[in-house]
């Protein structure tokens, strides 16, 4: 038996940097350093754990859609232990929205061949958290998402989804699309050996024609949503800061009362 896992990852601007929009209202990627989205590290980690705990022959492929620099995200995942990588890159992809991205990912996953897709819970830039569900809808396979615990055994994926009202146990047959949360387990750091090995691992590059996708199905012009404006949130006006000298709690209560909270 063999198990083919594809992990979808995103290269995002560092959330601790000064993120802003470009003139065409897409995310500016030039002025802030990019990196593998932190939430996707959990997906890579769970894929590697599934591989390590399996008696089957497991291959872990990381897949990203993004500009040239997005290779850095693939390299990071490879250094964590993934076997190979696929980079979908095409100038016509600039400005593609979630619906369009899910099309590209679905075609790429199908071309790569898969039994299991593992994604993070959301990207740290767009933060929509809908791509795994969209991918499952496009592929016509079960969606087993937002898991804080995941197991793969005997052609089945099981896991725990912690919702607001209840914690649910889920089960589906492979092939399936899984997403994991930041509660699924700390992601490993790449070892020196891992970093060296990653340099020799294969990274395939595909463009839209490799995936039989027309330019008019993706990109900013063909997006399903339009951003009309983006404005920087005005800085909050400086508040009152007091040092506690024994009356801090009372002073805070006084402020809350003045604002009619008590």
């Amino acid at each position: 038996m063999s198990l083919r896992i594809v992990v979808t990852v995103k290269y995002v601007p560092d959330a601790t940097g000064d993120r802003h929009f470009a003139d065409d209202l897409t995310v500016d990627r030039d002025d802030v350093d990019g990196l593998l989205s932190e939430l996707d590290e959990y997906a890579v980690e769970q894929a590697l754990q599934i591989a390590e705990n399996s008696d089957d022959d497991v291959e872990v492929t990381v897949l990203t859609v993004g500009p040239e620099d997005a290779k850095d995200a693939l390299r990071k995942a490879l250094s964590m232990g993934a076997d190979k990588a696929i980079h979908v890159e095409d100038d016509d992809l600039h400005g593609t929205d979630a619906i369009g991205t899910s099309l590209v990912l679905a075609k790429a996953v199908e071309k790569a061949g898969y039994d299991l897709v593992v994604s993070g819970m959301a990207s740290t830039d767009g933060t929509m958290g809908v791509v795994p569900a969209l991918l499952a809808e496009r592929l016509g396979v079960p969606q087993v998402t937002l898991l804080s615990e995941v197991n793969v055994e005997d052609g089945k994926v099981t896991g725990r989804r912690d919702g607001d009202a209840a914690s649910e146990q889920l089960e589906a047959s492979l092939p399936a699309v899984v997403s994991v949360t930041d509660q699924s387990g700390e992601a490993r750091y790449p070892s020196f050996k891992g970093i060296m090995a990653a340099k020799k691992k294969p990274v395939e590059s595909w463009d839209l024609s490799d995936l039989d996708i027309d330019a008019d199905e993706v990109g900013l012009e063909n997006a399903y949503t339009t951003v009309e404006s983006a404005s920087e949130r005005p800085a909050r006006t400086a508040g009152t800061i007091v040092k506690d000298e024994g009356e801090g709690g009372k002073q805070l209560a006084e402020f809350l009362a003045s604002q009619k909270f008590i």
Binding site: A15, R19, H20, F21, L25, D125, T127, A223, Y224, T225, T226, V227, E228, S229, A230, S231, E232, R233
Partner: peptide, 14 residues
């Protein structure tokens, strides 16, 4: 409200 609430955007479905 995006980028950790540092920006406000207005969008519509096209």
């Amino acid at each position: 409200s995006v980028f950790a609430a540092s920006y406000t955007t207005k969008s519509r479905v096209s």
